[in-house]
């Protein structure tokens, strides 16, 4: 069982993120759930590219020639930056919604409907 522990952690993180998105009514908690889901996807991509005993794909003072796959790491870098941009935009939405409606509860926002 232990050899795919990273994938089990990924599944746990994804389920936690999805549960937060489905069950919580607070907008900021929903956005935190989206961030946790993003982290699960990033960890999944990184774990797919791991080779047994490999080092980071950087040749400066490299200890060995056996390296992990580099493309998943590069794409995860892209994904992290896009996650930061999305988080900034979502939290700004939360601030604006709080200023307009006075609440961040999605049910109350739906009832207000100005």
């Amino acid at each position: 069982m232990l050899w795919n522990l990273p994938y089990i952690v990924v599944v746990l993180l994804a389920v936690i993120g999805l549960a937060i998105i489905f069950l919580k009514r607070n907008l900021i908690k929903i956005f935190l759930g989206v961030s946790i889901l993003t982290s699960a996807v990033n960890l999944f991509i990184i774990a797919l590219g791991y080779r047994e005993g490999g080092i980071a794909p950087i040749y400066t003072y490299a200890a060995s020639e056996k390296m992990v796959m580099a493309t998943p790491q590069a794409l995860t870098l892209t994904s992290i930056v896009i996650g930061v941009a999305t988080s900034a935009l979502m939290l700004s939405f939360a601030v604006i919604i709080y200023k307009m409606y006075g609440t961040v509860n999605v049910d109350e926002i739906r009832e207000l409907k100005e």
């Binding site: 040749y59 400066t60 003072y61 020639e65």
Partner: peptide, 9 residues
């Protein structure tokens, strides 16, 4: 140019 393999950089 950089040589192939581990190097000081």
């Amino acid at each position: 140019t950089v040589p192939f393999g581990p190097n000081p950089g």
